[in-house]
């Protein structure tokens, strides 16, 4: 039976971790804006690309 105690302790630990993560997520404002990140994630990060390539893009269009 004592194995149950260990499991309960572990499950509690996991549950509390998730609660903590949730509180952290609310605290850092992740629930504040639930639209913009969905757009932001689609932006390509092309900081390193050269100017020529951008111009080529212009021509392709």
């Amino acid at each position: 039976m004592s194995v149950i105690l260990v499991l309960i302790g572990f499950s509690l630990f996991v549950a509390l971790t998730f609660l903590g993560l949730y509180i952290w997520a609310v605290k850092t404002g992740q629930y504040k804006d639930n639209y913009t990140p969905s757009v932001r994630i689609l932006f390509d990060d092309r900081e390193t690309e050269s100017k020529d390539e951008n111009e080529n893009n212009g021509k392709d269009e």
Partner: peptide, 24 residues
């Protein structure tokens, strides 16, 4: 209103957490 909403989210988190575990 921002801090008010945040508080409500905390409360829901705590209540939901307790609800699920007590059920278990």
């Amino acid at each position: 209103s921002d801090s008010h909403t945040k508080k409500l989210y905390y409360k829901i988190g705590v209540a939901g957490f307790a609800f699920g575990n007590i059920m278990l």
